[in-house]
Design a protein around this nucleic acid. Sequence first.
DNA 1: CACCATGTTCCTTG
DNA 2: CCAAGGAACATGGT
Length: 284
Amino acid sequence: MPELPEVEILARHLAPLIKNKRIHEVDVRRARVISPTSEQELKQTLTGAKLGELTRRGKYLLFAFTRSVKKTPCILLGHLGMTGRMYLLPQESPLPKHAAVVLSLGKEKFIFEDTRYFGRFTLDTSSIQNLGPEPLGPDFTIEYFTKALKRSTQPIKVKLLDQALVAGVGNIYASEALYRAGISPRLAANKIKPPQIKRLHEAILEVLEQAIETGSTLPLNFSGSGQKDGLFYYGSAQGVSDFDQERLLVYDREGHPCYKCGDKIKRFVQSARSTFYCPRCQRH
DNA sequence: CACCATGTTCCTTG
DNA sequence: CCAAGGAACATGGT
């Protein structure tokens, strides 16, 4: 469930819960998620360390921590992949089936669970080196966006998923932003005219900001339940559907009427990912 | 059994 | 060398 807004919400939620907590024990249950860091290195580095700030970069979580001996601030990189979750449990609670890494923090334990194990929890920070600007930061300007789009012939929907263009947009919000901007997902990036680039830029900011704001005001279910993961952690006790219906205007709405014109929303595949759009509202 | 799924990386092709 | 496309990764839901 994790695109920028979900990761942002998670970071805000988790930050105060883990800050200044000492890591007493490190349990690596799936070595794949810590690679290329070795189990030995992770344990050696984290055991006894104290957690500090938790921040976000694109879809990545940056866990700052310090070790008592050397006071150099270090970073642990977290990524939720497609199905990752992070949350605290009471020390005595049973572990979830797909717990990948568990950190004992005293009375509680920090859980990184990930059914598909596509996520990461590693000391290797190389993957954030190639990220583009934060979409909600000062570097993501229309000028930057225009120049970057000019260099690509890829369909704009595919290009928006390129984390080197802008960091944090994923498959759901790419469709959502294009729908709001009224731009066809098939349009080549370098064919988009300035007025449309501006609209798309605005739409990206709008859709991400709105998702963060909405997520901030909801009762969230970070550890999940037996429930269908759906598209979010967002899920009140009552269920997810109402909220997602309001929040997502095109994604996963194939065959349903467009909220603007009533035409049927279409689905097709680009780079092996589903794209949803309204053929009438998004012609060029 | 078939197809689908929020993401990234690696390999191949052109 | 570079851009683009697709498969692989691993598990579960429908």
